[in-house]
């Protein structure tokens, strides 16, 4: 039984990693072919630097991901605080259900619904080519918001409201009391919301595809345009680099989490 379960786990991991392994393998191919390996070469890794369209798409992706995740984190954290303190249950659940719509709806519906709004607004305001960076940023903030709120809310439920009340009784304004007393204790939730928003934005294709214009391309959109013909192997090289950066980041997060847990355990013993 034990061996069977181990074999099963291994087989599924092979399935999950097979296409990634293929990409990494062909990123080192000397030739252009994706069927025959013509010898080991780092050629495509060097080629990235000369692929200006891909580089600018990468830059666009990063700018968009940073801006949208930071803005969504600020709006979303504030919103979570407000939602957490809402007295009316009806209002609370209505707000939550509306917030969750982009998470529940298929991406394609979220994408086209926003596109229709932008096009409609463009018509009303007589603006041509309304789609572009601005609409992309709005869309990314919108689909990031529920993830930030859902990461922050549980932390708020765990914090002691008396702490902030005490700060206010001691003369802090509500604003200051929040920053001094509550924010530090929900920071881990805010941070994981930010990271999640960032990665979602980085990887989004479907929603971006509908709300962007011809002048602004992100990396997933560029990959999509490439897959219509053939993908240049430098894209495999770039994907391989990104893959390993994320792998390293994940390992670092895991190690720091393990350390924090250890610390907490020692703390509890005292």
């Amino acid at each position: 039984m034990k061996i069977a379960s181990r074999i099963y786990l291994i087989l599924l991991y092979v399935f999950l990693y097979a296409p990634i392994a293929v990409l990494i393998f062909f990123s080192f191919n000397a030739g252009r072919s994706t069927a025959v390996f013509e010898g080991f070469s780092l050629k495509w890794y060097g080629e990235i630097i000369h692929d200006s369209a891909t580089l600018s798409a990468l830059q666009n992706t990063l700018v968009l991901a940073i801006l949208s995740s930071v803005i969504a984190t600020v709006i979303g954290t504030a919103a979570a605080v407000g939602i957490d303190r809402m007295r009316s249950k009806v209002l609370k659940s209505t707000t939550m259900s509306i917030t969750n719509v982009p998470m529940m709806n298929p991406d394609i519906v979220t994408g086209i619904s926003m596109m229709l709004l932008f096009v409609f607004a463009g018509k009303l305001l007589h603006v041509n080519n309304v789609l572009g960076f601005g609409t992309l940023l709005i869309a990314h903030i919108t689909f990031n918001l529920p993830y930030v709120i859902l990461n922050v809310l549980p932390k708020l439920r765990q914090t002691d409201p008396h702490l902030e009340e005490a700060a206010q009784d001691l003369g802090c304004t509500p604003f200051r009391a929040f920053f001094r007393a509550t924010l530090p204790s929900i920071m881990s939730g805010v941070f994981s919301g930010l990271i999640m928003a960032f990665t979602l934005s980085l990887d989004d294709f479907v929603i971006s595809y509908f709300v962007t214009g011809p002048n602004f391309q992100t990396l997933p959109l560029r990959i999509y345009a490439m897959t219509k013909k053939t993908v240049k192997p430098d894209m495999y090289a770039l994907s391989t680099i990104i893959f390993f950066i994320i792998l390293i980041l994940l390992i670092m997060v895991n190690i720091s989490q393990a350390r924090a847990e250890k610390k907490e355990k020692i703390h509890h013993r005292h």
Partner: peptide, 13 residues
């Protein structure tokens, strides 16, 4: 981890 590699490029693979 695989989810962080772009869906399009994995499908292409």
């Amino acid at each position: 981890l695989p989810m962080w590699m772009n869906l399009l490029i994995r499908t292409y693979s």
